[in-house]
Design a protein around this nucleic acid. Structure first.
Lengths: 140, 140
DNA sequence: CTTGACTCTGTAGTATAGTACGGAGTATAT
DNA sequence: ATATACTCCGTACTATACTACAGAGTCAAG
């Protein structure tokens, strides 16, 4: 080993995933194939850790790995004009705004449910229903 | 058929899922078993549609069906005090806030990436790296 | 009273996202 | 030099969340 970088084990530990997941992400094209040291061990630059965390965060927010890959690949579509790239980014940002809205909506439902519980014991089902119904016809 | 309610097909169509999914959610305890008509067909009250949409929205935001079930079951844990229920809701709301923060963070990354693209052609990788790195050590 | 659309139950199949494992090589500490 | 820990590759297994039948019953229209 000529240690000019992180080993896969170190990366996995710091990104709080396991080693197999790092290799899995590599196979799936979510992270680049790293350099290898003399003994064929993977050598990672520290940036990989934030990248893996980014992937995990995105996944945690309901993006599929395919979507995350698209997100990360936006910046280097060969032969694509800057304007077009910006356009695509804008679309993604709009998607994110929609998700944020949805989260706020769910939060509102929960807050209402929590408040509906005023007396002792069980909850008034009517208010639950109202909270849920307020969500109708948002469609998607 | 004695039509005092929606059929499973009508519900599925309105909630934009397919019929099998409605039955699947029933099996998984995410929606209640509905009344049956004379011919053993399921009869749904209109509220079911908003409930299914709520489930879908939550899923789209990275909650597992198990988590959604927990969310929906919060309001009727037998023998649980109101204060405790409220406490649990508060925990969930805190989780949601975290997700909202994460989304905003991802949005920031994308916005920065979009801006990094100023000239013509490919993007400056440094700014990409910076954007990603700004995310480090948020840990989860 | 039959045709076609819909529903029933149950089981099997699929896609996604990992996770585990076997057998072998590599590195380091004693 | 040898035990222990780490890594390699490839394949197999798992959980989650659907999705697709198969074979039978139900319903409404013509």
């Amino acid at each position: 080993m000529n240690n000019k970088g992180f080993s896969i084990g170190q990366v996995a530990k710091q990104a709080r995933v396991n080693v197999e997941t790092v290799r899995f992400y590599e196979r799936e094209g979510l992270i680049q194939r790293p350099e290898r040291d003399t003994g064929m061990y993977r050598q990672y630059a520290p940036e990989i850790i934030s990248r893996i965390k980014f992937i995990r965060r995105s996944k945690n927010l309901g993006f599929s790995l395919k979507e995350v890959r698209e997100l990360l690949d936006l910046r280097r579509i060969p032969g694509t004009e800057c304007g077009e790239i910006k356009q695509r980014f804008q679309e993604k940002i709009t998607e994110l705004d929609k998700k944020i809205e949805d989260l706020i909506r769910i939060k509102t439902v929960l807050a209402e449910l929590a408040n509906a519980c005023n007396g002792v014991g069980s909850l008034d089902f009517c208010s639950v229903r109202e909270s849920l119904e307020a969500q109708v016809d948002q469609d998607r």
